[in-house]
């Protein structure tokens, strides 16, 4: 399912998320200047770029925290440009925000339960068990305050929390940021596992090498515009990308 799709297949599959000519501005400062992109079901798509390129702004706009000034966002057949953030989650779009943003003064289990907030009073037992299986450390410390976890553990919690709403698309914003190399490897492995399990992922990463290795398709942003796009393999091979983003050359 996650095998690379050839071009004809790409066109024939209905995109889960399609963004057309998206513009986002902070007051007079335009941060995203006409981005168009697609995420197909089951794909892992990476969004790369330097700081200030507009990656986080794009994700925050997709999840409704920011309002686009122009452009369209279609997700699973629904227009999202004017939908408030708390309704977008219900459509199946989960956003695991930059810098983790767990609720520090609540327990791990409470954090996870909040992740499933939109599911109302359903029994969350199976989902909690699944989360604890995926991240055993969370299970061991489930009644501790989340603020006491280490950075990597908090990132695990943030991912597990985002998965609790059983999203159709998981957006991860720099999951490896500020982590030790070992922890970074572990988180990236988790992302790979999620991908293998069939989760559709939109991944923003600084670590371009790792992201491209994971991604079926990738877009490279520069000052609010897409400058290069292609399959992960293509971009890994692309001379310009190697020079500009992979620190080679």
């Amino acid at each position: 399912m996650t095998a690379l799709l050839n071009d004809e297949a790409l066109l024939s599959v209905e995109a889960l998320l399609s963004v057309e000519a998206l513009h986002v501005a902070y007051g007079r400062v335009e941060a995203v200047k006409g981005i168009s992109m697609r995420v197909l079901p089951g794909q892992t798509v990476a969004l790369l770029g330097a700081n200030g390129a507009g990656k986080t702004t794009t994700l925050r706009t997709l999840s409704g925290l920011l309002r686009p000034t122009a452009g369209t966002i279609r997700f699973a057949g629904q227009s999202l440009e004017r939908v408030p953030a708390h309704h977008i989650v219900r459509a199946g779009l989960a956003h695991c925000p930059e810098a983790r943003r767990i609720f520090p003064r609540m327990t791990i289990e409470e954090n996870l339960r909040l992740g499933a907030f939109i599911r109302g009073n359903e029994d969350l037992g199976p989902d909690l068990r699944q989360a604890y299986e995926r991240f055993p450390i969370l299970g061991e410390r489930h009644d501790q305050m989340a603020g006491l976890l280490s950075g990597g553990e908090q990132q695990m919690l943030a991912i597990a929390r985002a998965l609790m709403c059983r999203p159709r698309l998981l957006m991860l914003d720099e999951p490896s940021m500020g982590l030790s190399p070992i922890m970074m490897q572990q988180i990236l492995r988790t992302v790979a596992e999620l991908k293998d399990a069939g989760t559709t992922i939109l991944l923003v990463e600084q670590n371009a090498q790792a992201a491209l290795a994971l991604a079926d398709y990738a877009y490279v942003l520069e000052t609010g515009r897409i400058v290069v796009e292609g399959t992960g393999a293509e971009l890994l091979a692309d001379e310009r990308v190697r020079v500009a983003y992979l620190g080679e050359g």
């Binding site: 925290l65 925000p97 943003r101 609540m106 409470e110 992740g115």
Partner: peptide
């Protein structure tokens, strides 16, 4: 509680 601790992230939870 979540809203008090982090309103934006609370919105992301729905």
């Amino acid at each position: 509680q979540a809203t008090a601790q982090d309103p934006d992230t609370a919105r992301l939870m729905g």
